[in-house]
Design a protein around this nucleic acid. Structure first.
Lengths: 182, 182
DNA sequence: AAACAAGTGGGGTGTCCCCCCACTTTTCGT
DNA sequence: ACGAAAAGTGGGGGGACACCCCACTTGTTT
């Protein structure tokens, strides 16, 4: 890639980060180009679709979360590691404007999407918890991601605290407290 | 209201129902006006915001669901009645294009919103299940609605079956099957 | 039947996404 | 070091949209 192309690429991603943090995933692409100091055609050449731009903006966050999943594999309690990670994902998706929309609406056909990365990163955590017997088998990480995502999206207006509470609720179920078994 | 005003109002709602069923909650307002045979200004005068139109379109469905909640109050098993109703709401919101978006994005400040109607309708079902002891106290119907809504929204691309499965998961929790207690 | 209020739609403005095309900048072989 | 090919750029136009103003039409009322 040519030097100036990379320079513009970075300028666009930086400007997009700010605009999306302010206006959400549907921030105006023209305004992003304007504040990056490039023509709208340039933005459109680097990022043919809105989601390719969102992917570039959120790629870093997603990689961080994936790495965090790797770290948590070393924790002693598998169930706790899984729920901790899901809470972190939910908190991030709720707090970071546009992330939840981005994860939900990205075209499902492509591989290398943010959602697929997160699912792949969380899979070992889930498998470990299932092996341990603390999570019922038959549950897939894709299911849990959709759940966490949906909660993030629906609870976004209420703030991260509500999202976390709802995630806790969904992971526990609505039934009465179960007495710890011998 | 004048006779022709009501006539146009109905024409617009009918056209909007079709357009939204086809294109989702963000269907073009101009095209709705065009296919209703009225000017865009007329549409905009009857429905100042997109959500006021969505409310008119989905008001019937919402009232049906609310009535269904009333019927289920007569069921013998309170927990079953609650979960059945939540499943019906989820199925409806997942199947009917635009409903989930509409419920989620409607301005929270107004009363008489579709979401508020559903919450109010479900409240007795929840209270009965809590009194019965089959649902842990501290859970509000608003929480459950957000949950059901989020699931509908996030699972929409995968279809109603996936949404129902995820709702079951969320109501049960992820833990291993609990042996029926004496 | 006539006057008044309520309702209507065409057209204008500003914004947005997307694309084409003439021009500029970087890179690389000599 | 230099000039040509290749890669990149941005201005501007087309099409669609939401929203609003205003002269005109239509229904209602006494």
């Amino acid at each position: 890639m040519r030097a100036d192309a990379k320079r513009n690429y970075d300028l666009i991603v930086t400007a997009a980060s700010e605009a999306i943090a302010r206006d959400g995933a549907y921030a105006s692409l023209e305004e992003i180009a304007r504040s990056a100091g490039v023509g709208s055609a340039t933005l459109h050449r680097h990022f043919p679709t809105r989601w390719s731009l969102l992917q570039a903006v959120f790629g870093g966050c997603v990689r961080n979360l994936a790495a965090r999943a790797g770290d948590l594999l070393a924790a002693s309690d598998a169930l706790d590691a899984l729920t901790t990670w899901l809470h972190e994902v939910t908190a991030y998706a709720t707090t970071t404007r546009g992330l939840a929309d981005s994860l939900l609406n990205e075209p499902a056909e492509e591989s290398e999407t943010c959602g697929a990365t997160l699912v792949a990163a969380g899979e070992p955590l889930l498998r470990r918890a299932v092996d341990e017997g603390s999570v019922r088998p038959g549950i897939t990480m894709a299911d849990l991601m959709i759940l966490a995502n949906g909660i993030s999206l629906a609870a976004q207006p209420m703030g991260a605290a509500k999202a976390e509470q709802l995630l806790t609720l969904a992971l526990r179920g609505i039934g009465p407290a179960v007495r710890p078994q011998p």
